Simulated assay, not measured.
Amino acid sequence: MMFGLSLHAFTLLHTAISLVGIAAGVVFFASLTTGRWRSTANAIFLVFTILTSVTGFLFPPKPIGPPFIFGVVSLALLAVALL
């Protein structure tokens, strides 16, 4: 159990967080193609993408593999994006 949620419920939460991040990224990218900078969409994208990566580490432990490495690289790149 993660945060008092079953594995299934936690997976649904992780997926919902991911979908919000994807939607915000699409809105932000679409606005960039029209020459606009949407600060709110950018902030939502960054926050929810970080949350997606962090919650990915909370799943039951497995040996270090591609998902773990991708999460570490993702968080490193997001840290640079926040700067």
Rank of each mutant, 00 (worst) to 15 (best):
M1C: 11
M1T: 10
F3Y: 13
F3C: 09
S6Q: 11
S6M: 11
L7R: 09
L7Q: 14
L7I: 03
A9Q: 11
A9C: 03
F10V: 01
T11S: 13
L12C: 08
L12S: 07
L12I: 09
L13G: 00
L13R: 00
L13T: 03
H14G: 00
H14D: 07
T15I: 14
I17E: 07
S18L: 09
S18W: 07
L19G: 07
L19T: 14
L19M: 15
V20D: 01
I22L: 11
I22F: 08
A24E: 05
V26E: 05
V27T: 00
F28G: 00
F28T: 03
F29K: 07
A30R: 11
S31G: 13
L32I: 06
L32D: 03
T33E: 08
T33Q: 14
G35P: 06
S39T: 10
S39W: 06
N42E: 06
N42H: 12
I44D: 12
F45H: 08
L46I: 14
L46H: 15
V47S: 10
T49V: 05
I50G: 01
I50E: 01
I50K: 03
L51R: 04
T52Y: 05
T52Q: 02
G56P: 05
F59Q: 03
F59L: 08
P61Q: 04
I64S: 10
I64G: 05
I64F: 13
G65I: 10
P66K: 11
P67S: 01
F68N: 10
F68Q: 15
F70M: 14
F70L: 15
F70K: 11
V72R: 06
V73M: 10
V73S: 04
L75V: 04
A76F: 09
L77A: 15
L78D: 00
L78W: 12
V80A: 09
V80R: 12
A81E: 13
